[in-house]
Every structure is written in C-alpha cells, then in structure tokens.
Amino acid sequence: MSIEMKQRPEKIRLNVYRFDPEVDKAPRIDSFDVPWVDGMTVLDTLFYVLEKRDGSLAFRYSCREGICGACAMYINGSHRLACETQVARLLDEGHAEVRVMPLPHLPVIKDLVVDMTRFWENYEAIAPWIVTRSADPEKEHLQSPEDRKLVDEYVGCILCGSCFSSCPSVWTGKEYLGPNALMKTWRWVADTRDSAAEERLGLVGNERGAWRCHTVFNCVEACPKDINQTTAIQGLKRRTVGAMLRGSKALKAGRKALER
C-alpha cells in the first residue's frame, strides 16, 4: 500500500517513553517537536532527538533497513520496526502524533531499551542449528527449492522479539518458551536437511512449550515480517502427538542429543 502524499505539517510531535530505573522513580513521556522531512521514519525522529535535543535518549538500532530486528518498539499502539515505520504512514492511519514506547511486558533497561535476556535464553534452549546424522558434505547441505519453501516464512524471522512481547502466555508464564523459540523449532523440524526432528519435538512438546500456546494469535498480529507463529506451533503439536502415537523414543532424548 503506497503512502498518500497529502499536505504534511512543518513539525511532528514525538512522544517518547523515558525511564532510567537507576535514577527515575517512575516512567514519564517526553514530547519533542521534530521538523518534517519527506520519507522520515520513526527511527529518524529518534535520531533527531538524540542528536539535537537530548543525547541521553536510549534506543537500539543497527541495520536501519528492517533486517536486524534491533529497533522493534511499540509505536502508536502496535509492534513495529522504527526503521521501517514511516511517519507519513502513521499520519495516514489517522494518528496526529507519534508515540514511541518500549516493547511491552519486558523489563526496561533504559528508555526504549528492554532486557531481552529471557528471549535469547529461550532461543538458545531450542538448539537453533542444523543437526545431521550423515557425514558432512564436501561443500554445503543442499536443499531443493520445494523443500526450502517449507521453511521460507520462518527463515524470514529477524528475532526482533515483537511476538514474544505480545504473547499473554509469556507475560504470565515465566518459564514458557514463547512464540519465537517455538516457531524457530518448527523451522528446524520442517527443514528436510535436519535429522533431529523428533528430538526437537521432545524439547518443546511439554507444559513449558507448545502446550502453553492458547492460539491467541497476538504474535501473528505483532510480527513485522508477517510470520504466522501460531500455525508453526500447531504444527509442533500435531507432529508431537504423531511421534508419541508411533512410540518415538527420540521424544525423550533431551537437549544433549542436539548439541553440536
């Protein structure tokens, strides 16, 4: 959908969440007027504040082109990437001002920077690498275009944490793996080059894993890359039940079976 080029204001009001747990007693919203520039993204407005108005503003960014996932934030009531979100798009959606908050339900380190430790620990826990039983090929593990299509959607994940931050089961269940780690498990289960599908199902087919997903679909709504995590988790449930009915012993193999 193209952005309609209507009359733009000279300045845009940017409201930013500010909180330094080491100094502040409570969070606050700081407002800044940012001069309008065509093509300006929300990340650009944050840079304007950082460079011209308040050098203490903290936020994460890296690639500036929607690949690294570092600048995922809660912008005008939705999970979005600050680098990909044009201010003009927000105005076209009917917002008069820009409101930038950190990813919800994650501990704030400072301002827009949240603690992603649990997210990364859960990601590491599902062994996000290929496991093969056959001898290593001379060059690389080849995959047909058809097989690649099975995992295309999930490979596109940029690990921004939006799905994790949006999931009510994550908010309440501190040990829940969360939609990202589960979707990434499915990414490897569905990958025809991987030989440890049932061992992986054993890691997530439990009360802390796939069974905690209540198919709320918040993750799907939040994902800036339009990935359907819920479908992937349903796939995990189906495959786990199938493996159990077949009497698979690999389900009980545990994490060590997936070590490199």
Binding site: L203, G205, N206, E207, R208, T240, L251, G254
Partner: peptide, 12 residues
C-alpha cells in the same frame, strides 16, 4: 528443560 510431557492430556 523437561522432555516431552502432557501430550495425552492435551490430546484427550
């Protein structure tokens, strides 16, 4: 992390 579990309950 625990191994597989709770499958029967969920299936039932």
């Amino acid at each position: 992390m625990n191994g597989a579990g709770g499958i029967w309950g969920w299936l039932l």
